[in-house]
Amino acid sequence: MERRILITIDHDEIAPRFDLAMEVLILRLAEGGEIVARKSLLLAHPSADELCNLILERDMDAVVCGGIEEEYYHYLRWKRVEVFDGVIGSVAAVIDRLRTGTLNPGDIVEFSGAQA
């Protein structure tokens, strides 16, 4: 079954904070892990409320983010959105883990060597 996943990003890394993210990557992953569609969106300004609206409007199944405030975490969970929070690392490495179904909340995955 296809899954729709939103990843909050900062260049080629996972954005450190959900509420301060300015860019998101929306993926559609086939059951076998193939990427069916990939689209990135630049946000007008950072806002956790608007991100939650976007996630619900686009009917996302899961969210991958860095730190997220408890209130938003529980809200998304209540809306039956799976939340992989506390993820640190490069977007490419995170997508690899998503495709293989091995990503977990709090994972620290490798960086692609981007400047700190």
Binding site: P16, R17, G66, G67, I88, I108, F111, A116
Partner: peptide, 9 residues
């Protein structure tokens, strides 16, 4: 070894 912005946030 992690960038500080990901740790301190």
């Amino acid at each position: 070894g992690l960038p500080c912005r990901h740790v301190l946030r």
